[in-house]
């Protein structure tokens, strides 16, 4: 069983200051890592024979009060173990390097995060609004985006 401490040890061997904390998320080993090293860390976690996380199961974001958090749920098809990576993204200028070069599955998932949270993925080949219209304004999954439509707001004012 792969533990978060073991993953941290393997990552630290190559990126000494990249791991901020270790823990667990829903029973899976979880690591919080630095945003600027994310591509290198992901490539290491994928290529390393011991970890071999070749399957980007899910990539999403969470709007925390102080920051955005991008969460990567990783899985190894051969070894059948999990890891969760978390990265903090600054709210004023939300941007993060894209991991498309590591897993092609990041293509649409990063588009979705951009669409819903406005986090820009640098190096993404085709970052665009994927679920909403091209001229849609705002980022719906941010907590400050209201759920009441303009139409309803108007009728409430009347």
């Amino acid at each position: 069983m792969l533990t978060s401490d073991r993953i941290a040890e393997l990552v630290r061997a190559q990126y000494p200051n990249a791991v901020i904390e270790t823990g667990e998320s829903g029973g899976m080993p979880a690591l919080r890592v630095k945003a600027d090293e994310i591509v290198g860390i992901c490539a290491l976690i994928k290529e390393s024979l011991e970890m071999n996380m070749d399957y980007l199961m899910s990539q999403t974001a969470v709007d925390r009060p102080e920051e955005f958090e991008v969460v990567y749920h990783l899985y190894s098809v051969s070894a059948k173990h999990y890891a969760v990576l978390k990265v903090s993204v600054d709210k004023s200028t939300p941007s993060l390097p894209s991991v498309y070069s590591v897993w092609k599955a990041a293509d649409w998932q990063e588009c979705e995060i951009y669409d819903m949270f406005g986090i820009v993925f640098e190096g993404h080949p085709d970052l665009r609004r994927i679920l909403t219209d091209d001229d849609f304004e705002g980022f719906p999954l941010r907590k400050d985006y209201g759920i009441v439509s303009e139409c309803e707001e108007k009728s409430e004012q009347e």
């Binding site: 998320s25 829903g26 999403t60």
Partner: peptide
């Protein structure tokens, strides 16, 4: 707290975070 549930749906790996 948080949880990740995973089932094999008709279409594949269906997950909820």
């Amino acid at each position: 707290g948080e949880a990740y549930a995973r089932v094999e749906s008709s279409r594949g790996d269906l997950g909820v975070y």
